[in-house]
Computed example of a mutant assay.
Amino acid sequence: MRRPAPPLHRDDPKKEPLVGHVKVTREDWLNVARDILVSDGEAEVKVLTISTRLEVSRSSFYWYFKSHKHLLDALLDEWENWNTRLIREHCELPAPTITAAVCNFFRCFIDPARFDQGLDFAVREWARRDGKVRARIDRADSARLKDIAAMFARFDYSADEADARARILYFQQLGYHALEQTEALEDRMARLPHYLLGFTGRAHTGDECDALNDFARAVLAPPQE
């Protein structure tokens, strides 16, 4: 599930009104570019396409970006700052047990407003054709694995075991979304105790599973009409 696309600045009542001749912001350009990257791929992230969606002239692009490459670099910075930061923050959340810590890790991926799965896989697809993007993916994966391993190490796993369990947990999570699994929430939550035992080798508490179940139901509940 993708992170919801935010409304344009001019359509968002929470934003300050635009002044003068400004019709869109740098954030608007980036948000539309990200949406195109996720839906159509990097090759379709074109200035003309974005300006058409924004209903502005192409010349306004250069108020915010030096070039098309500058825009692509900004997209990569946004991806790395958003997704990698979120994983680190969830791994560092206070937890009384390793199973509770892994539940915190899962929260990052359950809530579509947090880890942007669509963006992550769009960048990975882009990396197949661009060596520099591939290098950034590799660095991001290394940083994420280090954070997850540190989470295990906090609960007295040896360095080697923490590294191995981090890899199992992270690669499983990426694979789950790459395969576009559509299992019912009830089925997924029913497997949670067994997942936790498999990932950590330690027994969970019922409260930990109940708390994650409640969180998942709250964030995935259909909007009220």
Rank of each mutant, 00 (worst) to 15 (best):
R154Q: 04
D12A: 14
E208Y: 00
I137G: 03
A153Q: 15
P112T: 09
F152W: 03
D138M: 09
Q224V: 10
H68K: 15
K15T: 04
T99A: 01
G175D: 05
C209Q: 09
R136W: 01
Y195K: 07
F152S: 00
L179D: 02
G118D: 12
R165T: 04
S142C: 11
R202H: 11
H90N: 03
H68F: 01
N83A: 05
D160K: 12
A143Q: 06
K15R: 13
I98N: 06
R165S: 05
D207E: 15
G131D: 13
L169D: 07
F65T: 00
D141Q: 12
P222D: 03
K23I: 03
L54M: 08
E55A: 11
G118M: 12
A113R: 15
Q224F: 09
D141A: 10
F121N: 03
R114T: 15
V38Y: 10
Y157H: 01
S51D: 03
W126N: 09
R128L: 15
V123M: 08
T200M: 04
S59L: 13
A221L: 07
E183H: 08
G118T: 14
F106D: 10
R85M: 06
F61M: 02
D116N: 07
A33T: 02
C103L: 02
T99S: 04
D156A: 12
L119R: 11
K66T: 14
